[in-house]
């Protein structure tokens, strides 16, 4: 069976699917043929959802979260504490923090972490915007909630250097043992940090 056996509209969809992360050519073909065979409204609903995604979403001009309304609902909420800014790497990190229901401040999304080897520098992240925001607004505390990884720590160390010159209070999320984990499997760094930040009961 030659390539011509598959119409261009299907090949095109397969090609497009396989550009997604974690989707190989096999999965891409399977998805395309499922849409072809499946109930016709699934493909149309998907098309509409994708179109909405592109046309209706944008970045919040304050926190750079993905939003349909600018400013985003969190930045526009007067009940939120706008003096406390929590800095996260990705919008998904923000969602994780929101699920805790414990944080009443606002956010700032960097859209990545510094990684010079992969060519990600300060100017590729929303760092200048964060600085401007701190300088202009009444921000009393910046909470660094970058990932507890080498890249996240490096980004946090870089941010500390830049924000400290402005004179705002900077804090970092506590680092220690995850719930449900076993001490025996904890690594030395995590245990050290857990010991350092132990609390009086």
């Amino acid at each position: 069976m030659g390539k011509a056996a598959v119409p261009p509209s299907v090949t095109n969809l397969i090609q497009t699917f396989s550009e997604l992360p974690g989707v190989g050519p096999k999965t891409a073909s399977r998805l395309a043929f499922y849409l072809l065979r499946g109930k016709s409204d699934l493909a149309l609903r998907l098309a509409t959802a994708l179109q909405d995604l592109v046309e209706r979403t944008r970045f919040c001009s304050i926190c750079y979260n993905v939003t349909e309304a600018d400013p985003c609902p969190i930045c526009a909420d007067p009940a939120r504490d706008h003096a406390s800014v929590c800095v996260v790497e990705e919008p998904l990190d923000m969602l994780a923090l929101e699920r805790t229901d414990q944080y009443a401040g606002v956010y700032h999304v960097l859209h990545g972490a510094l990684s010079p080897l992969e060519g990600i520098f300060a100017e590729d992240l929303r760092i200048a915007e964060l600085e401007t925001r701190i300088r202009q607004g009444d921000v009393s505390e910046v909470i660094l909630a970058t990932n507890p990884t080498s890249e996240g720590d490096y980004t946090a160390a870089y941010l500390v250097q830049r924000i400290k010159t402005i004179g705002t209070r900077v804090t970092r999320l506590g680092r220690g043992l995850p719930m449900g984990g076993d001490l025996e499997y904890a690594d030395a760094v995590t245990l050290t940090r857990a010991l350092e930040s132990r609390q009086e009961l």
């Binding site: 720590d153 490096y154 160390a157 500390v160 690594d187 760094v189």
Partner: peptide, 12 residues
């Protein structure tokens, strides 16, 4: 981990 280099994480 045999040796963890924590200082190379914290000092920019």
């Amino acid at each position: 981990a045999v040796t963890v280099r924590a200082q190379l994480q914290d000092d920019f």
